[in-house]
Computed example of a mutant assay.
Amino acid sequence: MAEDLKMVLLIGSAPDAVQAKDWDLSLFAQRVAINNAWQITPDWDYLVYPEDFAPERLPPTPLKPSQQRIAAAEFVPQQNSFGGFVYAGGTMAFTAGYWALGALKPDLMAFFGCDMVYGAALGESSHFYGQGTPDPLRVDVTLQSLEAKSARFMALALANDCAVVNLSELPESRLLFPRVARRDLTTPDLCQQLMQAQRALIDPAAVARALQAEHDLGYMVASGRYWEHTDEFDKVKLSDIDHLWLKALRTA
C-alpha cells in the first residue's frame, strides 16, 4: 500500500464498536468519532456531534492539540456541498461521513459501529454505553431507506476518488458498503482494487438520473435544520429518489 494513501476511520456507537479500543489505530491518518464514540478510544482526532447533543456528554476539556470538535457550523456547509441533509439522510453516521469526505478528502473511508441495526432481545443494549435512542430508526422523511442513503454516499465518495468500506463483522448492516477485514487494510493496492470494484458496482448513468431528480425537486435547507420544513417535503417523491439510488447499484 502506498505510503501516502490516506485512510480515515469513522467510529459509531454500536455495541461492537468497543472493539476499536484494542486496535492499533495508527493505520488511519485520521479517526473520526461520532457522538458518544469518543469514549471508546482516546486516539480520536475529530468528534462530530449534532446541535442537540447534551453538553455533559462531550469530552472534557482541554482537548489534545490533535483533537477537534466538529459541530453544525463545520459540518452543515460540507453537507450542503453534497446536496444537503434531505437527500443525504438526517442521521449522524451519514453526516459525519459527508463531513469527512469533504473536509479530510480521504482515499479510503472505513466505517465501524455504524450498522444501524438494533437488537430486539429484551435487555440487549442498543449502544456500547447501554440503551440509547435508535436515531436512524425514528420517523423521518429523510430516512425512509437507510440502504438507499448508503448507496448515495458510496456513489458520491466514488466521484470524489474515495473508496468506502464497512469493517463490521455483524451478520446484518443497513450499509451497503463492501465488507473488509481490518487486517486486510494493509494489503498492497487494496484501495485501487476497491475503487475498481466500486466503479463496477455503481452505474454512472443511474447516479446521474438520481442527482438530476434531486436537483429537479430542489429540497435544500441551507441552515441544515430540515426538520423545520418537513411539511414542505413530499414523502413519495423522496422515496422515488431512494429507489433511483438503489437502482444505481448494479447488484441491488
Rank of each mutant, 00 (worst) to 15 (best):
A210W: 03
A213I: 05
T230K: 10
E214H: 10
T230G: 00
D240S: 07
E228V: 02
E214G: 02
V236S: 11
L238S: 03
R225E: 15
E214T: 07
R209Y: 06
W245R: 08
E232L: 14
D242M: 07
H229L: 03
D231N: 10
A210G: 05
V221H: 12
D242I: 06
G218M: 05
A222Y: 03
D242Y: 05
V221K: 09
G224M: 04
M220E: 10
Y226D: 11
E228C: 06
A213L: 07
H229A: 11
M220V: 15
I241N: 13
Y219S: 00
R225T: 10
L244N: 03
H243T: 13
L244Y: 03
A222Q: 10
S223G: 09
D216K: 14
K235W: 06
V207N: 01
R225V: 11
L217D: 00
M220R: 14
L217E: 09
A213T: 04
G224W: 01
D231V: 07
D231E: 12
L238I: 09
F233I: 10
V207Y: 01
A213H: 07
A222M: 09
E228P: 00
V236Q: 15
L238A: 01
E214A: 13
L244V: 00
V221F: 15
K237T: 09
K235P: 03
L238M: 10
L244E: 01
V207K: 01
A210K: 05
Q212T: 15
Y219P: 00
A208P: 04
L211Y: 01
D216M: 12
A222G: 10
A222R: 12
K235Q: 13
A222T: 11
S223E: 03
S223N: 07
Q212C: 09
F233Q: 05
W245K: 09
L217Q: 04
G224R: 06
H243D: 14
W227D: 08
W245I: 05
Y226G: 02
W245G: 02
A222K: 10
W227I: 01
Q212R: 15
S239Q: 15
H229S: 08
V236E: 14
R225L: 14
D242Q: 08
V221P: 05
M220L: 15
H229P: 01
A213P: 03
H243N: 14
Q212F: 08
W227H: 10
F233D: 02
A222P: 03
Y226L: 11
G218Q: 06
E214C: 12
H229C: 08
H215R: 14
L244S: 01
Y219T: 00
K235L: 08
V221N: 10
A208I: 01
K235E: 12
V236C: 01
D240W: 08
Y226E: 03
H243I: 11
A208L: 07
H229K: 12
M220I: 13
